[in-house]
């Protein structure tokens, strides 16, 4: 495997898999001297998408794959659920960040943060496979 790629790895469909997911991402970031701001943002985005796949499709067959690659200073992350109905998790970003404490809810915050932290988020569904592609330029 070339150092600027961390090929697709398959992870259990559970929150407990996050340790391994983070280790996979951290290995890629270290090998490519990715700055802490970029790595923090991408780890948060990866967790939010991964846990949404788990939350909204807990009974899907097989695991969820995560792959990272660096191309010309831009990091591209692919998260793939290979057994899912069409369900665009990236749409769940309606959150009020200005209301008073007693009216705040945590729901929807994750995807809202993803869209704040990365440059682009795309969802695609085909043949029962959901793919979310995250893109972020390093150092921004």
């Amino acid at each position: 495997m070339r150092p600027h790629e961390a090929g697709d790895c398959l992870f259990d469909r559970s929150f407990e898999a996050l340790d391994a997911v983070f280790a996979h991402a951290d290995g890629f970031f270290a090998a490519n001297d990715v700055d802490s701001q970029t790595s923090f943002a991408l780890k948060l985005a990866i967790e939010e998408i991964f846990t949404n796949f788990v939350k909204y499709n807990p009974n899907g067959r097989d695991g969820i794959s995560v792959g990272l690659q660096l191309d010309g200073g831009v990091i591209v992350v692919n998260l793939i659920d290979p057994d899912s109905a069409e369900f665009d998790v990236t749409e769940f970003d309606k959150v009020d960040t200005t209301s008073a404490l007693d009216q705040r809810v945590a729901g929807g915050l994750g995807i809202y943060l993803v869209k704040k932290m990365v440059d682009d988020v795309k969802y695609h569904h085909s043949d029962r496979t959901s793919t979310v592609v995250l893109t972020k330029k390093m150092g921004r």
Binding site: L44, E48, L101, D102, R104, A106
Partner: peptide
Amino acid sequence: DYISSAGLGVLLKTQKRLG
């Protein structure tokens, strides 16, 4: 080192309860 929306949710629920 790190917090995600899950952690924020715990803090928010606690803040609302204590409030």
